[in-house]
Design a protein around this nucleic acid. Structure first.
Length: 629
RNA sequence: GCUCACAUAGCUCAGUCGGUAGAGCGCUUCCUUGGUAAGGAAGAGGUCAUCGGUUCAAAUCCGAUUGUGAGCACCA
């Protein structure tokens, strides 16, 4: 499996360049210039971190008085003024004790905390400081030598946001100012233009324009309604997944969207994720309800409690347990596009990428320890096959490990260090044997075991997991799953959780952005739009539509009250892949004129030939249409 | 959940100093019957997110709530 590390986290946070790069020094120095300008405008503010990032820099402040984006022009003006002054950057190392005294004088509590930690935990004997003009910062550099070397027109303050000190939600929330910064104005302009283009590709915008999904507040936040066009895309993805899984030896199952609460205690989910689940639905004892005289349940006994399922695994485990299993049956691969519900934090919900109700391309593979590696490899190959068909190439593979040093470790991970070590080694072996490039994600594991995650970025830059394969050494135990081995004794199976196609919600969001809404024919809600030159050819147009629909091609006839130009424009706006234009010429010859989305060139061909070409492209899920000469 | 911003027609937006609402697109109807990205005309469509406050008067000012966006935290 080929893989790329184009989304390397470290690259993002240390700048996508080496620290001795000119661009790194410019961005880092501009951050100091911004801090100086902020302190001018808001004296008494204190400083957090201010590093270079992928496309610029940010700086965190605890402001004495709030700033808003309306203050950006003034801040930028002051920054340019500082640049113009030509302040020199002076570097100075101070021995630990002296350094802490210096920070104390500076009145910077956050810098002090970090400085003290560097000395105590990392054993630094000295700390580095940089001064330019009146601005002094504890900072390891490097910087440009003089602010005159900074571009005055190649940076732009971008946004203002909250960010927790040191990324911990128990800490103070500081104000973070993000900026774009480059070496030349042309680069900044290009970057801004690309960013604006990305906004036009946002799946929330395309989803509305193309009739894919809607969110209605009466239904609920994060609970998308799939419109007819979006449902077509879902169904096509589901068909593809079913085919690939059938060929890979999966069996399909169907299970309910909820279960008695106790199931999630047994599986171990409820103790770990109670706050991320919808609250329980409680069925009261009828005798109590009667006594309560309408105000049912007051003080009465809960007879049963149900929970909407946050995942499908416990149900699948119960399918596994429903019949006796022999070692001869393994691996058992149970697949379901399963609807799940999670009480995501309000701040995380957005569009289709993070929702509270979603349909997951789920499957669970039950196998022996000896089968784990081969099963993982088969799942990885299934991903690759799916990604090749969908044309997805820009992603990062992450080995998500537990974090034995996590202070919340006991609450976050199953307490079984030996199992963690062993199972992480298995996954690592899989990746190495397959020659996959990957990054380590310490602390990114599931509570029940390590994962291999495939990470993508939305066009707006947010990183999210798309696919995942997980090794579970815990749930088969807690749910008491077993199979009969060759020795006639019960044995514990291992379980692999996997979701190559993610959820319909997240996958469609990514594909909308990936294709910029212009789906290949096989995925397109309308695969062929017939446009007649005038109403007198509508009968011929209807014949074409019927001939195509007869073979399950999603063809539609454009209404004839508009001009040809208008109808072609409308089809283009809806990004319909194939527009079929028919008039007198085509009717006489029994042909159609094909215009592909995004192309001006046209082909006139026999209806049969066109139908064959469309069917071929649909059946092979090809992006292109192969036309006869 | 946290910080900040925003919320006007289906969509994109305008609305000055507080004086009871506007455009374009879309939609409906009619005319036009056409050859490649907007033919013409007319019409419908708004409790200015919700609730409360200030005021003679609120889309406009203030507060709360809900929702949306960016970011942080979270993400089985």
């Amino acid at each position: 499996m080929r893989a790329m590390a184009s989304l390397d986290r470290r690259a993002e946070h240390s700048g996508a360049q080496q620290s001795d790069d000119e661009l790194y020094r410019i961005r880092h120095s501009l951050a100091h210039v911004l801090a100086q300008a902020v302190l001018e405008l808001r004296p008494g503010s204190t400083l957090g971190f201010g590093p270079p990032i992928k496309d610029g820099f940010y700086y965190d402040f605890l402001l004495s008085e709030p700033l808003t984006e309306a203050d950006f022009p003034e801040l930028e003006r002051r920054m340019r003024k500082i640049i113009k002054k030509g302040q020199r950057f002076y570097q100075e190392d101070l021995p630990a004790a002296e350094a802490l005294e210096r920070i104390e004088e500076m009145g910077e509590p956050y810098k002090r905390e970090y400085g003290a930690e560097l000395i105590a935990k990392q054993g630094l004997s000295a700390l580095s400081f940089y001064r330019n003009g009146p601005f002094l910062d504890m900072c390891e550099g490097p910087h440009v030598s003089d602010t005159k070397q900074l571009p005055r027109d190649a940076f732009k303050l971008r946004s203002l946001a909250g960010a927790y000190w040191r990324g911990d939600s128990d800490n103070t929330m500081m104000t973070r100012i993000y900026a774009w910064a480059f070496t030349a104005k042309t680069e900044l302009d290009e970057h801004v233009a690309r960013w604006e283009e990305a906004q036009r590709r946002d799946h929330k915008k395309l989803g509305r324009e193309l009739g894919i999904f809607a969110i209605d507040n009466d239904v609920g936040r994060g609970l998308p309604l799939w419109l007819p066009n979006g449902t077509v895309v879902r169904d096509e993805l589901e068909n593809l997944a079913k085919e690939l899984e059938f060929k890979a030896g999966y069996q399909r199952v169907a299970t309910p969207h909820l279960a008695r609460e106790n199931l999630y205690f047994k599986s171990g989910h409820l103790p770990y994720y109670a706050e991320d689940m919808y609250p329980a639905m409680e069925v009261m004892d009828p005798s109590d309800a009667q006594e309560a005289d309408g105000a049912a349940g007051e003080g009465g006994a809960v007879k049963e409690a149900y929970r909407l399922r946050p995942m499908n695994c416990p149900h699948h485990h119960k399918v596994f347990a429903a019949v006796p299993r022999s070692y001869r049956d393994l691996p058992v691969r149970l697949a379901e596009y399963g609807q799940v519900y999670r009480w995501e934090d309000s701040g995380a919900v957005g569009g289709l990428v993070r929702v509270r109700g979603m349909c997951m391309n789920d499957a669970h593979i039950y196998c022996t320890e000896a089968q784990i590696k081969d099963e993982f490899k088969a799942v990885m190959r299934l991903y690759q096959e799916a990604y090749d068909i969908l044309g997805l190439t820009d992603y990062m593979v992450r080995l998500s490990r537990w974090d034995p040093d996590d202070p919340k470790g006991r609450d976050k991970y199953v307490d079984n260090p030996q199992a963690w070590t062993a199972s992480e080694a298995i996954l690592e072996g899989v990746l190495q044997e397959m020659g996959v490039n990957y990054v380590d994600g310490v602390g990114e594991a599931a509570f029940y075991g390590p994962k291999i995650d495939i990470q993508f970025r939305t066009v707006t830059g947010r990183e999210e997991s798309l696919s995942t394969v997980q090794l579970d050494f815990s749930q088969p135990e807690t749910l008491g799953l077993s199979y009969v081995g060759a020795d006639g004794q019960p044995h514990r199976p291992y379980c692999i959780h996997r979701a190559p196609f993610s959820t319909h919600e997240r996958m469609v969001a990514f594909l909308l952005e990936h294709y910029a809404g212009a789906f290949p024919t096989w995925l397109a809600p309308v695969q062929a739009q017939v446009v007649t030159v005038s109403e007198q050819f509508d009968a011929y147009g209807a014949e074409i539509v019927a001939a195509l629909r007869e073979r399950m091609v999603r063809a539609e006839l454009a209404p004839s009250t508009e001009t040809v130009s208008k109808k072609i424009r409308q089809a283009a706006t809806l990004k319909i892949p194939n527009v079929l234009i028919v008039g007198e010429r085509e009717r006489q010859e029994g042909t159609v004129t094909l215009r592909r989305h995004g192309h001006k060139a046209q082909h006139t061909l026999a209806l049969d030939a066109l139908r064959a070409a469309l069917l071929e492209a649909i059946n092979t899920r090809s992006k292109e249409l192969l036309l006869p000469d």
